[in-house]
Amino acid sequence: MSLASLKRQGRELGTLGGLLALGLLLTALTPHFLTVSNLLNVMEQTSINAVIAVGMTFVILSGGIDLSVGSLVALSGVVMASALHAGAPIPVALLAGLLTGAFCGLVNGSLVTLGRLPPFIATLGMMSVARGAALLFTDGRPVSGFDASFRSLATGRVLLVPVPVLITLAVYAVAHLVLTRTRFGRYVYAIGGNEEASRLSGVPVRFHKTMVYALSGLVSGLAAAVLTARLNSAQPIAGMMYELDAIAATVIGGTSLLGGQGRVSGTLIGALIMGVLRNGLNLLGISSFLQQVVIGLVIVGAVLFDSLLKTGERR
């Protein structure tokens, strides 16, 4: 095994160690943490951020950023909900929601590749446009009340495991395979690592970059489905700040904001750290104001740790 891959593993083990240490600490502090129902609850609550963070990881690996995911969750959710209310069968409504997310992502990607906009700007615009569209579409009101069969997307269990957790695991398994085994995954790393070299090697850079944003939109649509089913309501103001949670999970998981380096397994751990932290702070009865402070410190701390490791290498 080469030195660098050892270091990479080390980074990931470090994150995993952080998650376990956090778990041990909470187990010691409160009897309510280490119970099957609480752990499943944490995973269920984490699932939405985790699913969005997969798309974010792809985008960041390719050297970009996607600020629109939270708004896309809202827009996809209200489209899906309205379709259900209009009497569309569940698969059709789901598809409508997913395609809404993917289409907006495609627009993001095209703005970045064809329009040569910085990803920050393109997706910032989409963040506002999609949010506004969701509000216009619903006249600012939530769309609520669905069949039990749709709600089972969030409330259902298979052998005790909540469906959202299964969805999350499936998404991560597929994402991991795509990144490590397929050409598409390889190109995501290559473009993020050295875009010009990729272009000169004949990699269809524009196409793959566009697809990465479409993917991010698609998984936002999927997260919207779970969220809508869980709340039994689609809100045009849903998903506020979700983009920041997804970026935080990705970064805590060790993906470089410069692109080209990182893995989805790290992102999953990153999302779990955030979920466990929120859950634990709630169990401990710590105010939500202080929670924000703690979570901010964890994000900065994780990346600081990373950068200290790197400077250590260089010296």
Partner: peptide, 8 residues
């Protein structure tokens, strides 16, 4: 200027 992707 060599055109390689350093992390690959």
């Amino acid at each position: 200027e060599l055109n390689l992707v350093p992390h690959l």
